[in-house]
Design a protein around this nucleic acid. Structure first.
Lengths: 201, 201
DNA sequence: CCTTTTATAGCACAGTCGTGCTACATTCGA
DNA sequence: TCGAATGTAGCACGACTGTGCTATAAAAGG
């Protein structure tokens, strides 16, 4: 007695089952069997929607990327670049449960992509998207004398570092702490570049 | 015909075999069989040195942490905090092959530690060590009006973010790019805090 | 020289894995 | 109404896994 359901919904349900297993047990336990059990489906049924495990994994990661992209795109883009930057970054940092989950799944897949070519392509896509976003934010913010590309790299690294820290030590790097660090950084970007008094020995 | 070797050397060799397998094939392929083969030993022989796989993994991670700690401790600590900071951070960033390797292994284990309590303890140790180090560096550098704890968190996040980026996109985030970003950041830390002209709507 | 310890090797067991395959029920199109 | 398509389930195969166990050879200690 198969229930009739839009296959897109089933595929999303299975991707969400992947996310839950990855968060709870780790990516190494996200086997076809475990994911099917998590989604309350049989293995055979899962394989009706995904021909292989790697296809399932790629889809699960794809949904994460698309979700983030859409949430950013849906943000109101009023004129003030300062406020827009604050909003975008707040959307990117793992400040609430949903984004904490997204972030942890993303980190797990990022690590695996180091040795998995298929996932690497997706990871690079997300990475480039984020870098481009940082470039856009920085362009509207930086003070005189600052190198836009370098500041984009710095903001991007800060963002990813904070995301890792939020996942690793949520008790130390709390949402408020993340917000404070990012706010400071944005303020600073508006100041002119502080040229160095080089201490050479 | 067992060769006679200091067991400590064998254990280190096995740990290094773990590192190589992790970098080449991923942590999920670091099985006792694969690691034993990489070290040109039999499974039985490996298990003579490590009673279980988790013991082997914990040891492999422990060696990474100890290595980093020792290299930092061995740094000359001359008086100038600016130069010391530059040296410490250059030692921490994945700027050469050895540190690239260390970094990739560290990232793989960091990801797994999200769901493995034994590895988590080690990871947290490394994390706290790094945060404490950032606190020390920041203390000798920051300009007036800056919150030391927040700047330590910022430097730490920047450092970890750059490390991730160096692993993910070595072609974009090259050693020179990492150095430039860190140098900029250190210069900026010496400037007084730029108070915000808040744009409230 | 003989015994004990250490280092090495290899096998066997039980479990999990991905995937190919078959079977069956439901829904749909003609 | 009746085939075709679709959704669901489950089994079987071969491969890989961690670990317990035994065997053997070399070294160490008396």
């Amino acid at each position: 007695m198969p229930k009739v359901v839009d296959p897109r919904i089933r595929r999303r349900e299975l991707a969400e089952a992947v996310w839950r297993v990855v968060r709870r047990d780790g990516l190494e336990h996200a086997s076809v069997r475990n994911v099917a059990r998590e989604a309350r489906l049989s293995m055979g049924s899962l394989r009706h929607y995904f021909a292989s495990q790697s296809e399932l994994m790629a889809f699960a990661l794809r949904l994460v990327i698309d979700g983030i992209e859409q949430r950013i795109a849906a943000l109101p883009s009023d004129g003030d670049p300062r406020q827009r930057a604050a909003r975008v970054l707040a959307e990117l940092l793992p400040l609430d449960d949903q984004r904490r989950a997204e972030n942890e799944v993303w980190l797990a897949f990022t690590a695996r992509a180091m040795t998995d070519p298929e996932l690497r392509a997706l990871r690079d896509e997300g990475y480039d998207m984020l870098r481009a976003g940082c470039r856009g934010l920085v362009a509207g913010l930086i003070g005189p004398g600052r190198d836009p590309e370098r500041e984009a790299a710095r903001l991007h690294a800060l963002l990813d570092g904070l995301a890792v820290h939020a996942a690793v030590r949520p008790d130390v790097d709390t949402p408020d702490a993340l917000r404070a660090v990012i706010a400071d950084h944005l303020s600073e970007l508006r100041a002119p570049r502080t040229t160095d008094a080089p201490t050479r020995s």
